[in-house]
Amino acid sequence: MVSNNKNLKNEINKEMSNIGNEAKGFLERFIGDVSKKSAAKQIFIGTSTGWVTGFLTMKVGKIVAVSVGGSIILLQIAANEGYITIDWNKITSKANKLADKAEEAITGEGPSWADKIKSFMKDNSYAATSFVGGFLIGISF
């Protein structure tokens, strides 16, 4: 079974190499060695390939921008019309849990109690300020 996988991988690598060589051969036949051509031909080849690359990048960029922007606008309209409801508290809590797991994986230790308290105070500012106010009133008596 393992040797079959290795043979398959070798065949795929050979085929990809052949495709790459065919493409390289086509370009060499079409353009040739550019450095041996006259300066005018080099300038023409550089200008035309640059223009084609820029033109295609512009067209693809516009399509991507319209697609992403349009989908964001449609999602916002759907959310405003009530077709989509987003539970931001759930998203925030899951993001915090993922961040804690990532921190634990990177540093080897999870968030400290101080970090958890700071996060709670940041997420629940009214409860946190009320707690601090009550705490200060409690220690003054």
Rank of each mutant, 00 (worst) to 15 (best):
D87E: 05
G32S: 13
F55G: 00
G110H: 06
T53R: 14
E81L: 12
S67Y: 10
A99N: 13
G46I: 01
V52S: 04
A40V: 12
S93C: 00
K94D: 08
F44K: 12
T107P: 00
K94T: 03
G108T: 01
G108W: 03
A95P: 02
K59Y: 10
T57Q: 00
S48D: 14
I72S: 05
I43M: 09
G54V: 04
S48L: 15
S48A: 15
A102N: 04
A102C: 06
T57D: 00
A105M: 13
A99C: 01
F30N: 11
A95S: 12
A99T: 10
I77Y: 03
A79T: 15
N89S: 09
T57W: 00
I106E: 12
A99P: 01
K101M: 13
T57G: 00
N80Y: 15
D87N: 15
A40K: 09
A65M: 15
L74F: 13
G82W: 11
L74E: 06
K37W: 02
A105H: 12
I106M: 07
N80W: 15
P111Y: 03
E103M: 09
A95M: 15
I45D: 03
K62T: 14
G50N: 07
I43F: 03
T57Y: 01
V52F: 13
M58W: 15
K101N: 10
T49K: 04
G82C: 14
V34I: 15
T47K: 05
V34Q: 11
S48P: 03
G50H: 06
K90S: 02
W51T: 10
S48Q: 14
I31A: 12
E109W: 06
K59L: 14
L98T: 01
E103G: 10
